[in-house]
């Protein structure tokens, strides 16, 4: 299994699409590693700079609703993966993106809008998120306070993460 948790990158907008996460022009790359410098390159948002140093330290993304909408490109989870981000927490995901995350053994965690608001309240305060995968809990710790949230992911998706992704799971089982 991959490692989950660490410093947090907050993306305070809904409907962030896969073209913003990794523009189509990089889809001609055959290696995941080549995507690395282009993460969120076309994501325009006040205060967000894709060249920002703190981006390279992030391990977890916290965002709003319908994250990952748009194209089916798995390059979106991959660009996070090669940047060492293996967890995205949102109030909802687009279906294909969500499945792509679990298929790659990464976590797409849904929390209520209220819980997401609480996570956002920690922004700019050295926020860290740790994940207790076996017990479906995540803890947000910052200089402000610390709080634990329960989350739910489908049993199937959990099994994929444990198996190291869908290819291994399916080739064994079907």
């Amino acid at each position: 299994m991959k490692t989950y948790g660490g410093k947090v990158l907050f993306l305070d907008r809904s409907d962030i699409n896969t073209d913003e996460i990794i523009p189509a022009k990089y889809l001609t790359e055959i290696s995941k590693e080549a995507l690395k410098p282009h993460m969120l390159e076309d994501f325009k948002f006040e205060g967000f700079n894709p060249q920002d140093q703190s981006l390279s330290e992030a391990k977890v993304i916290v965002t709003r609703s319908n994250f990952g909408c748009g194209s089916s490109r798995e390059h979106a989870p991959w660009v996070f993966e090669v940047n060492d981000i293996n967890v995205v927490i949102a109030s909802s995901f687009a279906r294909i993106f969500r499945q792509n995350m679990f298929n790659c053994g990464m976590l797409a965690i849904e929390l209520s809008e209220k819980a997401i608001d609480e996570l956002f309240a920690h922004r700019g305060a050295d926020a860290l998120i740790s994940i207790d995968f076996d017990n479906d809990k995540l803890t947000m710790t910052s200089s402000r306070s610390s709080k634990t949230f329960d989350y739910q992911i489908a049993e199937f998706d959990k099994a994929l993460v444990k198996a190291g992704g869908w290819v291994e799971f399916a080739d064994l089982k079907y």
Binding site: S72, P77, I96, G165, D171
Partner: peptide, 13 residues
């Protein structure tokens, strides 16, 4: 529509 891994499993299985 599916991602690359789903496509891979579709091709394989």
């Amino acid at each position: 529509g599916v991602g690359t891994t789903d496509l891979e499993v579709g091709i394989l299985k």
